[in-house]
Design a protein around this nucleic acid. Structure first.
Length: 352
DNA sequence: AAGCCGGGGCA
DNA sequence: TGCCCAGGCTT
C-alpha cells in the first residue's frame, strides 16, 4: 500500500509542476483529436525528437482523418519511412477508415470506443481521451511506469501481467478529480518521466516528488524500475538482389503486410546465397552476373541484420521470367513515393 | 505469457 | 555495446 499522503499529493503537485516546468509547445498539443491520435501513434516506442521530424510532414499531407482514410496505403507508408514499426502506419490508415465508416468521421470520446480503433490500445486510448476530451483515464507508458516504480517503490517483474495490473491500478488511483486538469496532468506524467525522472541520471533535485519519492528515501532510484530480462540478439545474414536497368530503374516489390518491413517496397531479399541463386535463375541470371557490395550491419531491437547487396547492372533479357513476377521497375525519380526500409533507402542514396 | 515488430538516442 | 523509448498485435 503506497503512503496515503503521497497518493493525495501526487496529482496536485504534478499539475502545478507541469504548468510551470512542463512542455507546452509541442506541435501536437492541440484540441484536435486527430492530431492527438496521430502523435500518440507516432510516439509509440519512438522518442519525441524523432517524431518532431515526421509529424508536421504527415499533418501537411493528411490534414484530417478523411484525407488519411482516402489515401493509398503506399502514400501513408512512404511518409512513415524511417520511423519503424510499420504496423503502426498500416493500423493508422485502417483506423482512419474505421473513424470514417464506423464513427461518421468523428473521433469517439471514450476510452473503450477509442480502443476499438486499430493500433490503439489502453494507454493510447487513455491519452487521446484525456488530451482531446478531458476524460479521467490514465495512461501507462514507459515513462509513467518508471515514475510510479520510483515514487511508490514498486519492485516487480516488468514482464508479468500481475505487476502490470498493479501499476494500472496505482495509476488510476492517482488521477485528479477534475476533468479540466486531465490534459496538464497527463502531460505532466510524460514530461516528468522524459525530462526529470529519466532512466539514467534522473534529476531528483528538480523533481516535485523528491521529498515523497519512496525510491529516493530508500536510496533505490538507480535500481528501480527493475530491468527486463535481456533479449538475445540474433545475427541474420541477408542478401539484397539489386537489379538495376540501364536507365537506373530498380526492381522492387511490395513486401507482405506481416513481418519485418511489412507493406514497404524492397529489392528481393533472401537469407542465403543458395536462395539468391535460385531466385536469379528464374530471371535468367546467376551469381556470376552479380557484383558483391560491402556488407551493411543493421541493428534492430532483437536482431542484427548483416546485409550483403548483390548488384546487377543489366539489360533485361527479352523473355526473362522476372517480368512475370510480383514487382515492378521503379524509376529513380519515383522512389520518393515508395516507402522503403531505412537501410535500403540509405544504401540507394549511397550508390545513387 | 511470450514473441514480434524498426530505428534512434544515449551512456 | 546494452538498454530503452508517449505499445499493440498475434499466437
Amino acid at each position: 500500500m503506497p503512503p496515503k499522503t503521497t497518493v493525495q499529493q501526487f496529482a496536485p503537485r504534478l499539475i502545478a509542476w507541469q504548468q510551470q516546468h512542463g512542455r507546452h509547445h509541442l506541435p501536437w498539443q492541440v484540441a484536435d483529436p486527430y492530431g492527438v491520435w496521430l502523435s500518440e501513434i507516432m510516439l509509440q516506442q519512438t522518442q519525441v525528437a524523432t517524431v518532431l521530424d515526421y509529424y508536421p510532414r504527415f499533418m501537411a499531407a493528411f490534414p484530417n482523418v478523411q484525407a488519411l482514410a482516402a489515401a493509398p496505403q503506399d502514400a501513408v507508408l512512404s511518409l512513415w519511412q524511417g520511423l519503424g514499426y510499420y504496423s503502426r502506419a498500416r493500423n493508422l490508415h485502417k483506423a482512419a477508415q474505421q473513424v470514417v465508416a464506423d464513427f461518421n468521421g468523428e473521433f469517439p470520446c471514450t476510452r473503450p470506443q477509442l480502443e476499438r480503433l486499430s493500433g490503439v490500445g489502453r494507454s493510447t486510448a487513455a491519452a487521446i481521451a484525456a488530451f482531446a476530451f478531458g476524460q479521467r483515464e490514465s495512461i501507462l507508458d514507459g515513462n509513467v511506469k518508471r515514475v510510479l516504480c520510483r515514487v511508490f517503490a514498486q519492485d516487480g517483474d516488468a514482464n508479468s501481467k500481475a505487476f502490470n495490473d498493479t501499476l494500472w491500478a496505482l495509476a488510476e488511483s492517482l488521477l485528479p478529480p477534475a476533468a479540466a486538469d486531465m490534459a496538464a496532468y497527463t502531460q505532466g506524467l510524460m514530461d516528468l518521466g522524459a525530462t526529470v525522472c529519466k532512466r539514467s541520471k534522473p534529476l531528483c533535485n528538480a523533481c516535485p516528488m523528491a521529498d515523497v519519492c519512496q525510491a529516493r528515501v530508500q536510496n533505490r532510484v538507480a535500481e528501480l524500475p527493475r530491468k527486463k530480462a535481456a533479449v538475445a540478439v540474433a545475427v541474420l545474414p541477408l542478401y539484397w538482389l539489386v537489379l538495376r536497368r540501364a536507365d537506373g530503374a530498380l526492381w522492387l516489390h511490395k513486401r507482405p503486410q506481416k513481418g519485418i518491413w511489412g507493406g514497404l517496397w524492397c529489392v528481393p531479399c533472401v537469407p542465403s546465397l543458395a536462395q539468391a541463386e535460385q531466385w536469379l535463375a528464374k530471371a535468367g541470371l546467376n551469381l556470376a552476373d552479380m557484383s558483391e557490395g560491402h556488407t551493411i550491419s543493421h541493428r534492430l531491437t532483437h536482431r542484427l541484420l548483416q546485409i550483403t547487396p548483390l548488384v546487377c547492372d543489366f539489360r533485361l533479357p527479352e523473355n526473362s521470367a522476372i517480368i512475370e513476377r510480383d514487382g515492378e521497375w521503379v524509376a529513380k525519380a519515383d522512389l520518393a513515393a515508395y516507402g522503403l526500409p531505412k537501410p535500403l533507402a540509405a544504401y540507394l542514396a549511397e550508390i545513387r
